[in-house]
């Protein structure tokens, strides 16, 4: 994998700067069309193909991670309370997950996909900000699976520390997410969706991921 996660640069960021201006993102995408098309970049105009969208396959993996994992009983209110998949931020996998993940059940437990966004702190005073952040942190910690969308790449370290110790299985397609301390890191490899598993982090989290999943993973360690 990619041995050096960009942790030092991103860790200093505050919540306010997590999401870049939406207009800017759209504009950058437009710029990318022409920039990339111009010099043999693999990310330029790609027409609809008859192969599946990698985002959808990744979202199916996230649902399967929920299916093939076990949480301590204390993580649920009762025997039929849902498995919550949080989608923090936005990317194509998150969007596909919202469409795909609901209406699935694991035994008696329904799966619920819950879109999450960092709190809008504008106009709040200091104490309200703290409260909003605490509420947001609690929302994240309530999830059983947390999919961190690529829009949150810059904040992934603070997100991971927010859910530490809360038995949350962290999943992302952000590059080097597993090396940065995330648990399951999806990527496209050799035209197939594959994933890295940071087994140390998974074991430390208290979530048990089935060996059926882990045997398909490439093992990754946290890189300091």
């Amino acid at each position: 994998m990619h041995p050096k996660p960009h942790t030092t640069r991103t860790a200093k960021r505050t919540d306010e700067t997590v999401a870049p201006s939406p207009r800017l993102v759209a504009l950058r995408c437009l710029a990318a069309v022409f920039a990339c098309a111009s010099l043999a970049a693999p990310a330029a105009a790609q027409r609809d193909d008859d192969v599946p969208d990698s985002a959808k396959v990744m979202s199916a993996w996230v649902v399967n991670f929920a299916r093939f994992s076990e949480w301590p009983g204390s993580k649920f209110e009762h025997g039929k309370s849902p498995i919550i998949i949080g989608v923090l931020g936005r990317d194509d996998v998150g969007t596909a997950l919202v469409g795909l993940g609901n209406d699935v059940a694991v035994g008696d437990r329904p799966v619920r996909v819950r879109p999450l966004a960092p709190p809008d702190l504008a106009g709040l005073d200091g104490e309200e900000r703290l409260k909003a952040r605490a509420r947001f942190r609690e929302e994240l910690r309530r999830c059983h699976v947390l999919y961190v969308a690529r829009s949150e790449a810059a904040a992934s370290n603070s997100i991971l520390s927010s859910v530490a110790g809360a038995q949350v299985l962290t999943v992302s397609s952000i590059k080097d997410f597993a090396a940065a301390g995330g648990m399951l890191n999806l990527e496209v490899r050799n035209n197939k969706v594959a994933f890295d598993a940071n087994v140390e982090e998974i074991n430390a989290s208290g979530v048990t991921v089935s060996s059926k999943v882990l045997r398909l993973a490439r093992i990754q360690k946290t890189e300091k």
């Binding site: 330029a44 790609q46 027409r47 496209v188």
Partner: peptide, 19 residues
Amino acid sequence: LDQLSALEVDSVAGVGQDW
């Protein structure tokens, strides 16, 4: 899970509609 692993996908995620 094995089938999902073996599935070929479009390698360019999320930029499909620039065209």
